[in-house]
């Protein structure tokens, strides 16, 4: 039987509490990993390793956090913003993430806000389904 979304959220929450040294009430669905929860780059890898173990899934880093590959491609970034091509690529690579707000101002500095607790839950839901 597939895991319920609530169950996935609870396990993702445990992963984030352990990986980032958080309190229980800090991990809410719309919290951003970097802005709200203080994750740094190495924490993303820690989170990936822990998700793999908790859910017994394979998580290629570029699937869950594909922004780096997009940002490093000059076709996708111009003047500190994602180009249309870049946005299309990000949408394609991040189906688990809601990009509606980001599209209004696709500044590369806003990209960190895309990595939310909800996005991880969506991603895991897709993997364990």
């Amino acid at each position: 039987m597939a895991m319920s979304r609530d169950k996935i959220f609870e396990e993702v929450k445990e992963v984030l509490i352990d990986a980032l040294g958080l309190d229980d009430d800090e991990v809410v669905a719309d919290a951003t990993l970097m802005g709200d929860l203080g994750a740094e780059s190495i924490d993303f890898l820690d989170i990936i390793f822990r998700l793999e173990k908790s859910f017994d899934i394979k998580v290629p880093r570029e699937e869950l956090f594909p922004a780096e590959a997009v940002l490093n491609n000059p076709d996708f970034v111009s003047g500190g913003k994602l180009t249309e091509k870049g946005l299309a690529e990000l949408k394609d690579k991040m189906p688990h993430t809601d990009l509606t707000e980001f599209e209004k101002d696709p500044n590369v500095n806003n990209i960190a806000d895309l990595f939310t607790v909800d996005a991880i839950v969506n991603f895991v839901e897709g993997k364990v389904a």
């Binding site: 890898l45 820690d46 990936i48 390793f49 793999e52 173990k53 880093r61």
Partner: peptide, 10 residues
């Protein structure tokens, strides 16, 4: 070693 990937290890 608990996990190892091209970028990192735990």
């Amino acid at each position: 070693i608990d996990s190892i990937a091209p970028e990192a290890a735990s």
